[in-house]
Each structure stands twice: as structure tokens, then as C-alpha cells.
Amino acid sequence: MSARPEPETHVAETEKDDAHWTAQMIAVGAARDRAAFEDLFRHYAPRIKAFLIRTGLAPPVAEDCMQDVMVTLWRKAHLYDPARASVATWVFTIARNRKIDMIRKTRRPEPEDLTWGPEAEPSQADVVAMRQESARLAQAVAELPERQRDLVQRAFFGEATHSEIAAATGLPMGTIKSRIRLAITRLREAMPEGTADRDRDGT
């Protein structure tokens, strides 16, 4: 491989925050920035692999799946919408879907995608607000009493049943939901005419 461009800034891993990962993701999406992608890889690949192992994949399978996820991240980077999800959330959904598709050998049904209209894009204020709400939720998860955090983890790692999942309370889900709801409304307003659902009244 020829000399790869070094990242412009050398920031210690611990100092990299959500804003950093958002910027790197956008650099990959907008400019096909390989250095930014390598940075994302070094941070997320080990976490994706750990997550996949935790949900029951054997380590070699998790390794293959993780590599597919990272390639997908590169290919779909231009679709990443920072007003609707943090990078961690987006990575999580790609990893989850890839794992299910591998197991089922067919594509998992996903909700219809909402996309920005040709003239529109998210406002910086919305992007920052989304990031802050995501960080707040992550903080709340980290601060949960151990027993409750364990329940939430068990739910996500497939070790709990539906009714047990309902016990995943005590998290401020209302605010993140409101923030995402707002982003969806903005998207609906920005979508080109004729793509709205036939019964939708636009509210």
C-alpha cells in the first residue's frame, strides 16, 4: 500500500468525543477521507467485534461480520445524518442488521428510509442538539445502578425476553425521542413532493 495520508491532528483516543466522530464520519461521507476512516476503524472495529461476540457470534464469525460492517460504513457514509443519530448509534444499527442478514441469509425488513430533499440538509443546531441528547442518554446508561444496567445490556445482547426488557426503566427515553421526532418532522418537511405517504397529512 502506498503512503497513506496521516490524520491532520493527533488526538489521544480518550480525548476524542462524539463531535470528533461525527466530523470524521462526515469527512468519509463527503470527501472519501481514508485517514478519517482509519480513525473510525481503530475506534469502532474493536467495539463492533465485542458487541457481536456478546450477542452470540463466534469470534472468527464476529471478525468477518465486523469487517463487512466497516466496509458498509464506508459505502453508506454519505447517507449518515448527524441530526438523527450519533455515529455510535448508526454504527450499532449497521452491525445489528449485518449480523441478522448473515444469520438469515436474507435482508432484514427495515422501515422506509427518510431522506433530505435535494435542497435541504440538517441545521448545525439540530446536529449539536442530537449529539448532546445522545451523550446524555449514554451518560444515564453509565450511571444506572449495576442491576438495572445489566438488564438493559441483557435486553440488547439478546439474553432477555420482551417482558424483561420492559424493566429497562429509569432511562430518560422521552427527551431523546422528542429530539428524534423533531428531526423526522424536519425531514418530512424537506422531502420532495410526491414522496410522502399517500395518507399522510404532513403533520
Binding site: S86, F92, V152, K177, I180
Partner: peptide, 13 residues
Amino acid sequence: GGFETLGGALLEQ
């Protein structure tokens, strides 16, 4: 989306 954000937080941690 809120629950997926929770998944993202768990992945990050």
C-alpha cells in the same frame, strides 16, 4: 430511534 440510541451507547461503552 431512541432505543437505537441506547444500543449505540452500549456499543460505545
